[in-house]
Design a protein around this nucleic acid. Sequence first.
DNA 1: CTTAATGACATGACGCTGTCATCTGTAATA
DNA 2: TATTACAGATGACAGCGTCATGTCATTAAG
Lengths: 191, 191
Amino acid sequence: MVSRAESAASTRRALLDSAAALLDEGGPEAVTLRDVGARAGVSRGAPYGHFADKESLLAAVAAESWERLSDEIAAQRGTPAERLRGALAALVMIGRHHPHRYRQMFGPPAGEEPGRMIRASCRTQEEFLAIVSELVGERDLHRYGALLFTGVSGIIAAELSGHFDTGTWRTSADELVDTLVAIIADGRIQA
Amino acid sequence: MVSRAESAASTRRALLDSAAALLDEGGPEAVTLRDVGARAGVSRGAPYGHFADKESLLAAVAAESWERLSDEIAAQRGTPAERLRGALAALVMIGRHHPHRYRQMFGPPAGEEPGRMIRASCRTQEEFLAIVSELVGERDLHRYGALLFTGVSGIIAAELSGHFDTGTWRTSADELVDTLVAIIADGRIQA
DNA sequence: CTTAATGACATGACGCTGTCATCTGTAATA
DNA sequence: TATTACAGATGACAGCGTCATGTCATTAAG
């Protein structure tokens, strides 16, 4: 039997899952509190018992995505170079498999307390820096770490907007990521 | 006296300006067709005579922003290196002065015919490549040109999301842009 | 055991929104 | 002057987020 508190927690989980599913399917516009509630098996007003408003619900989904990315990055194994490429590949995969959630992650911090998503993204950045620190010297760690992460996120954003389908750039997101990694990481392996 | 066609054209212009102003002030959520019409001095249904729907109106605003950026990049003067930095600075300035419009420009191509915004952004990319081609060899033009543009756009996106205010990256958008330009352009000046 | 309190959830209602069908007035044409 | 075409105005509708209120099961106190 499920206790009262357990039921409430599972409802919250179901709301987050429903919101994520609707977000993936049709973007933020398609995330309707009525549909979220229906998919979670509750009413349209139920989310207000768990989240301040719709923006906070979407922010919570984004925060969870950041946390999952943190785990994926921390789970990388192999040489530092392999782990770096693996971490960046995880970022790329989120953008390709869940474009709307990706935009939510990199969108403006919203909801009632925007700090939660920021905090989740900070953990991801720290996990990422831990990998980069094995490849570049302490002096360049933050500059090159941030450049790799924000650079790749910009490349993916361009891909999602179709900027590689027009023939102007005459290159691909994968090639750009490889080039960026090569420029920054290669030849700078810490002695 | 204003002819009928002139009046219609000026109404369209007023609608675009109103939408851009509302977008800058409060983001896409604040762009209400009713407010757009009121600010343009027309009714709430008038936009449907000029744009298919709200998304198309916002897409037109984004397309105009891309065109303005094209002009700014084309207007750069000085050495190739100066023009490169000036072009990237123009991109950075849009992000800082008009963050919501910036997100609209780099967001998913929306509206009835998404091709218009894409086409406008292509012209910008071509103007940008024209500058880069004077700095790097033909072989690396597209790879490094696209890397500079998408990289800087990612850096700005991170700044807009507050990722440099947390202390994790311990750097700034300006420093990252400088670093990226230095890595790619310096030492690769075409002979 | 009875009873009161707590809290999760359901429901009705409100205002605001995008959208469309319809109407009105005015400019161009003949 | 009569006709036509079209920009814009207006009324109406459904869907949305949001909130005040109601309902009911669980739990704690008496």
